[in-house]
């Protein structure tokens, strides 16, 4: 596909603008009330994505998944896409393991930010930069 979606048309500029770090911060504080500390979240992403249309992503947290304590949510954000939200995974103890994978669009080189919330309300975050050679359209 041709990345026509990235053409900024006069008068439509704001709608097609890219997300910013500030927007990512807004989404996280809306979800958690405050910015969490850096934590042990494993983010598996390529350092360089030749095709931004389909960038493989895996996230994992090495934590017990029991009824008393488990990873409840993992949210993935991208600070250089048109909108910062990518996906939010909701886990339960039945997952056995707090791990999930998907494929994402990255329109340009940017930071992928991952936020996790545990069942007791504790939260943490981590991020990883991906250099994008050919941007994915319209993420």
């Amino acid at each position: 596909a041709v990345a026509t979606g990235l053409t900024v048309v006069p008068g439509l500029g704001p709608r097609l603008a890219h997300a910013t770090e500030a927007e990512v911060t807004d989404v996280i504080t809306e979800m958690l009330g405050e910015m969490p500390a850096e934590g042990a979240i494993s983010i598996d992403l390529p350092e360089i994505a030749e095709n931004g249309n389909t960038v493989p992503l895996s996230v994992e947290i090495d934590a017990p998944m029991t009824a008393d304590s488990y990873v409840q949510d993992i949210m993935v954000l991208a600070d250089g896409n048109p909108s910062p939200r990518v996906a939010q995974f909701h886990f339960t103890p039945m997952n056995g393991k707090a791990s999930a994978s998907t494929r994402m669009r990255l329109v340009q080189t940017q930071n992928v930010v991952v936020v996790a919330r545990m069942s007791d309300g504790q939260a943490m975050m981590a991020s990883k930069q991906v250099k994008v050679t050919i941007g994915g359209c319209g993420g």
Binding site: N53, T54, M65, A87, N95, S99, S101, R105, L106, G136
Partner: peptide
């Protein structure tokens, strides 16, 4: 036991993998 909210930044032909006990 598992769900995902997806946004437009997920690639076409969405792939999701996860685990179940």
């Amino acid at each position: 036991f598992f769900s995902v909210d997806l946004y437009p930044s997920v690639s076409s032909n969405p792939y999701i993998s996860f685990f179940a006990k």
